[in-house]
């Protein structure tokens, strides 16, 4: 029952795929072992045997994965595969959900973030998050960015805060567009600008890792392109984990890609390899658009 994939051309990404060299067998198709290269040499975050449960629902099953330093890791997979859940486990955002349990171990620079003495407040300052829907505070653009700086006491003076706000907005590529109206409400910006404002807000507290949960799914293509450029640029200095539905986006912004399937991490590898030569048959099915 050999599967013979031909050359598949993705509609927008225009990436060519070579035929998988490995044989597609029932046995391999049923396997839920992670294949590829889930571990990195110099990881910023290491996850070992992570399981997440929502009540009785086993949402993440035995996931072990490293997030490499200063690179972008994309997480793809069909809806409900647990990629967002996994992302939210990385800065303990799942703690806020009733009935959510987690086992296993996640370390940030060798430190167990689920340790008893670990406080989520500094953790979330170190591991920032950008959400699916742009969610600026109903405050001015300036205050949106200054908020994190203020609550963590990262600046001594008003001028220092102003410097951080300007720097963050410049990094987010928003400075030119908003520098004349920093006192206007952040909610008055367009969707794409709001999302870049949220990214600026996240980098204002100088995190080490930035988590992005489908940051472009509520944006139009032009705004998406701007945010993707920004992610590419931020990837030079920051460790980024991004969940996305768009395989083209994963291909454009990430160095490594992880494929999740119904709570299992099936395959991790360099992005170009995942999209050109996937090992797991289900990965191949997904990226060639056979399901998902």
């Amino acid at each position: 029952m050999a599967h013979q994939p031909g050359v598949a051309v993705m509609e927008a990404g225009a990436l060519e795929f070579r035929a998988a060299e490995v044989e597609d067998t029932d046995e391999r198709r049923e396997s839920r072992e992670t294949v590829g290269t889930p571990f990195a040499d110099d990881p910023r975050m290491t996850c070992r045997d992570v399981n997440v449960y929502y009540g009785d629902n086993h949402a993440i099953k035995n996931v072990s994965l490293d997030i490499g330093r200063e690179q972008v890791l994309a997480m793809i997979g069909p809806s409900g595969c647990g990629k967002s859940t996994f992302l939210r486990a990385l800065n303990r955002m799942n703690d806020t959900i009733d009935g959510c349990r987690m086992t296993g171990e996640i370390r940030l620079d060798g430190q167990d973030i689920y340790a008893k003495d670990m406080d989520v407040v500094p953790l979330r300052a170190l591991v920032g998050m950008v959400f699916q829907k742009p969610n600026p505070f109903p405050k001015s653009i300036f205050d949106n960015i200054a908020y994190g700086v203020r609550i963590h006491g990262l600046a001594e003076s008003k001028s220092e805060i102003e410097g951080i706000v300007e720097h963050s907005l410049k990094r987010a590529g928003l400075w030119e567009e908003v520098n004349d109206r920093l006192d206007q409400p952040g909610t008055g910006l367009s969707g794409g600008q709001q999302q870049r404002l949220c990214i600026a807000r996240t980098i204002a507290v100088s995190p080490e890792v930035i988590l992005m949960d489908e940051p472009c799914s509520a944006l139009d293509p032009i705004a998406t392109a701007k945010v993707e450029d920004l992610i590419n640029e931020l990837g030079q200095d920051y460790t980024i984990a991004i969940v996305t539905h768009s395989m083209q986006q994963a291909a454009r912004v990430s160095q490594r890609t992880a494929y999740f399937h119904l709570g299992d991490l099936l395959e991790v590898g360099p992005t170009d390899q995942i999209f050109t030569n996937p090992i797991h048959p289900l990965t191949e099915d997904y990226i060639t658009g056979r399901f998902g």
Partner: peptide, 27 residues
């Protein structure tokens, strides 16, 4: 109060009380 505002505050590292006092209560 929309959950997105809570997530935004928590995501930036606000404590629960800061989230409530700074963002949830005003709204």
């Amino acid at each position: 109060v929309p959950p997105s505002i809570r997530e935004a505050a928590l995501g930036i590292g606000a404590s629960k009380l800061q989230m409530i006092v700074h963002h949830v209560l005003p709204l």
